[in-house]
């Protein structure tokens, strides 16, 4: 198979506003340059992210996270309490034929994640293959990790990884969260370390996921940090969108 050249951005821990602004910046870069891009990141402030269509006031229904920072994502789904987690974001250009129907791609990306997690000692399975009598799920729940869809990744009855997407004219962004440890802002959601009573090695996991995306999507990754133009654009996006009260409270 001929490999497409892709870009991988080094891991950083940033705020919710910075993370969401940088994901949008990357999608804009992919729209222009048509280079598949992968990024792993963490959160330096515990942050609740609302799904694009969720009403801001719905956060009142979840008291443990009321005092956390809050940002509205540009992607769909339910609210996520980002605290002790690994987040990935993958942007694929339309020009690459791998993109296909978006749900096929969603399934394909999660299959890569399942194998990487399995190789790192975390035996997750998609919800569609799991025992569906599981711990406290509710399809209308405020928190994404209490909802279930077919490709959500489940460990010991708990959802530990979920993803969301945003399409643009010429690319598809998919980002997702792997819960590592429960947060005091969402204590009902255990992470993989809690469920396995061990500690996953993050560097090893990032390497395994990167390799699987390379094998399964036909991409050879080359490391590249954000350019100064991209940082400027991310700041503009933050001011216009993710840091603004108008955006946060738009629903």
């Amino acid at each position: 198979m001929t490999l497409n050249l892709g870009r991988i951005v080094p891991f950083q821990k940033l705020s919710g506003v910075e993370n969401m602004s940088l994901d949008q910046t990357l999608q804009e870069s992919v729209d222009r340059q048509q280079i598949p891009t992968l990024r792993f990141y963490g959160w330096n402030v515990p942050t609740l992210s609302l799904g694009y269509f969720q009403p801001f006031l719905s956060r009142r229904t979840h008291s443990p996270s009321l005092l956390s920072a809050c940002v509205r994502r540009a992607t769909g789904g339910g609210a996520i309490m980002h605290h002790r987690e690994l987040t990935y974001s993958l942007v694929l250009p339309q020009s690459i034929q791998m993109i296909g129907p978006r749900l096929d791609l969603y399934e394909k990306i999660h299959a890569s994640l399942v194998r990487a997690l399995y190789d790192c000692g975390v035996p997750v399975a998609p919800f569609r293959q799991s025992d569906q009598n599981q711990c406290g799920w509710d399809c209308d729940a405020f928190l994404c990790f209490r909802r279930r869809t077919a490709e959500d990744l489940i460990l010991h009855g708990y959802k530990v990884l979920g993803s969301a997407q945003r399409k643009s004219r010429s690319s598809l962004l998919q980002h997702g969260s792997l819960l590592l440890d429960a947060s005091e802002f969402a204590p009902e959601l255990p992470g993989v370390n809690d469920l396995l009573n061990s500690r996953i090695q993050l560097n090893e996991l990032i390497e395994a996921i990167t390799q699987n995306f390379s094998d399964d999507l036909g991409i050879k990754w080359k490391e590249s940090s954000f350019s100064s133009e991209e940082m400027t654009r991310a700041n503009e996006i933050a001011v216009d969108r993710f840091a603004s009260e108008r955006w946060l409270c738009r629903r």
Binding site: G51, A74, G76, T149, Q165, R166, K167
Partner: peptide, 30 residues
């Protein structure tokens, strides 16, 4: 599809501009 945003009456658009957005199984599409 689970959500849809529509434009306001009176909005002026060019061909190719975003008119609204839809959400379907976790994805937002213009």
């Amino acid at each position: 599809l689970v959500y849809m945003d529509l434009p306001e009456v009176g909005r002026v658009v060019n061909a190719g501009d975003e008119l609204g957005e839809v959400e379907s199984v976790k994805a937002v599409s213009p």
